[in-house]
Design a protein around this nucleic acid. Structure first.
Lengths: 139, 139
DNA sequence: CTAGGTGCTGGAGCGCACTCCAGGTCAAGC
DNA sequence: GCTTGACCTGGAGTGCGCTCCAGCACCTAG
């Protein structure tokens, strides 16, 4: 598989794939006779996993660390496991935080629900809006 | 309340507070006789809300949009409500995605659990690791 | 009267994660 | 033989969200 097809199949851009290789997220690709990158389909699994790490907010430098450990082989398994457990906990904590935020958002949205009616608080934004409601105070 | 105290109470840096004001996230602060910013405590509520928007991944430009609408007063309430509902849905979608990722992470971590034993797959990372497990292939 | 602390402004700089570009190679189709 | 298109490299540029800095003003304590 050449880089163009890999890009289509992963949704990554050509530049991003090459960038990921440069920084060590992807292993140095094999090359065909024309020195073009020639990927084994197994790279798709790895990229899918990288995408999950990214989705869950892992910074690239940590992904690079994980990738480096993985490239070193079997004896780094314990460290990789620890890294993932640590990340899992961070993600879980973030999810909890998001749930709390969602509750606040829903409350606020409920405050806006009666919009243009007068049966709810004037401005759900704050108790003492100070300079807010008198508006047009743009300098 | 002067900017230093606000910084202590919010955990934002002085620079961040001034930056937020510059870009319109915070309303232009009142000034005391020495032209120093003098905050009403109600700003704390607003900043707490901004922090939630940020935690939930709203880009600053969208927060600025929301802040601008809010500063325009009552007649933008509907639009603000729509904006929040839209964001809430995005956050919910992201949370769902995170749950899926957590499941994958847990599976992978389980694969690492038997680390240094041989009763689990050699390398939980992929089915056909290609150049991975033979290691030290750093150029 | 002076020193230290806190605040002010405008503007430069930074780390991150890409993204774009110029100038080139190579293989295949017309 | 020539064009087209996919790919190559090294390096510069971008947008975001701050963060830092120089040089100055002001207030309070000693």
């Amino acid at each position: 598989m050449k880089i163009g097809e890999l890009a289509r199949r992963t949704g990554l851009s050509l530049d991003t794939i090459r960038y990921y290789e440069r920084i060590g997220l992807l292993p140095p690709a094999d090359r065909n006779t024309a020195r073009q990158r020639d990927y084994d389909p197994s790279i798709l699994t790895w990229i899918a996993f990288l995408r999950r790490l990214k989705t869950t907010g892992m910074p690239i430098r940590d992904m690079v660390r994980y990738a480096a450990l993985r490239a070193q082989g079997e004896e780094t398994a314990a460290e990789r496991g620890a890294l993932l457990r640590h990340h899992r906990d961070a993600v879980q904590a973030h999810v909890d935080e998001l749930h709390a935020c969602l509750a606040v958002l829903d409350t606020k949205i409920a405050g806006y629900a009666g919009t243009t009616r007068e049966d709810v608080n004037h401005d759900p934004d704050d108790q003492r809006p100070g300079p807010a409601p008198d508006a047009q105070r743009r300098r």
